[in-house]
């Protein structure tokens, strides 16, 4: 492994809209995240956490600044290459879940594997395993409309981890869960992080969840306000 970090952000800004309606959600972020780290991002609502996560997930491009992922300049990639990067390296848990409607939990979780071209049998098994990890055994054939908010959130987590991505991006993955479920999910993330070396960047409002992370970055008004790294236990 080279010593360059998995993620390197330099001078990242993001402006939404233009003219008088323009709003700068990120005002210059510099950040290095080494491979294998478990990072929690905190900060008040509207401080740009989701915006930053979307940039990291290559779902959106920055207005200025550079983003290097595994030492590759993401801005040099075309649409297709970025899609392939998402397919093979990234897992994303959206703040709003973004599950396919009228589609069973099982099929939702299988979807990223399908795009990776996995075999049918392997796809089924992996999806069932991922659903079991988030405590949804027995709920495979329910559609999002038949699941509670917390259950939908767990399906979204299962969909993000089923591919065992290099980098897992999670936007408030425990936001809809009771604290016991939340802790279970955190244990799962820690396990994935420790045992499989999955790098995790997680946005959370809850300090007790952030405690599971190796490093806590606080956003404020589009800037990094503080950045604390802990010793691993």
């Amino acid at each position: 492994m080279s010593d360059s970090p998995l993620i390197r952000l330099r001078g990242i800004t993001k402006t939404y809209g233009n003219g008088v309606a323009a709003f700068q959600a990120l005002k210059g972020i510099d950040l290095d995240i080494p491979a294998g780290q478990f990072v929690a991002i905190m900060g008040p609502s509207g401080s740009g956490k989701s915006t930053a996560l979307n940039l990291l997930g290559c779902l959106d491009g920055p207005s200025s600044g550079s983003y290097r992922f595994r030492d590759i300049g993401v801005d040099t990639l075309d649409r297709q290459q970025r899609a392939l990067l998402r397919r093979h390296c990234l897992g994303f848990v959206f703040q709003g879940f973004n599950l396919l409607a009228r589609t069973s939990a099982q099929e939702n979780v299988e979807l990223p594997l399908l795009y990776r071209g996995a075999e049918t049998a392997q796809r089924h098994a992996a999806a069932r395993e991922a659903l079991a990890h988030v405590g949804l055994t027995g709920w495979e054939h329910h559609t999002p409309a038949e699941l509670s908010g917390g259950q939908q959130q767990r399906v979204a987590i299962a969909r993000a981890i089923v591919t065992r991505p290099l980098l897992l991006l999670a936007d408030e993955p425990t936001g809809n869960l009771d604290s016991q479920r939340g802790h279970e999910i955190m244990e799962l993330l820690v396990t994935l992080n420790r045992q499989q070396g999955i790098t995790i960047v997680m946005v959370t409002h809850e300090p007790e969840m952030a405690d599971y992370a190796d490093r806590i970055i606080r956003f404020s008004d589009g800037l990094v306000a503080s950045d604390h790294e802990k010793e691993r236990a």
């Binding site: 297709q80 899609a83 599950l99 396919l100 409607a101 990223p112 969909r159």
Partner: peptide
């Protein structure tokens, strides 16, 4: 609905032509 669905598919790694 279709647009959002397409967004989801693209976000989890589908290519445009797929």
């Amino acid at each position: 609905e279709r647009t959002r669905e397409i967004g989801i598919r693209l976000a989890i790694g589908a290519l445009e032509h797929e």
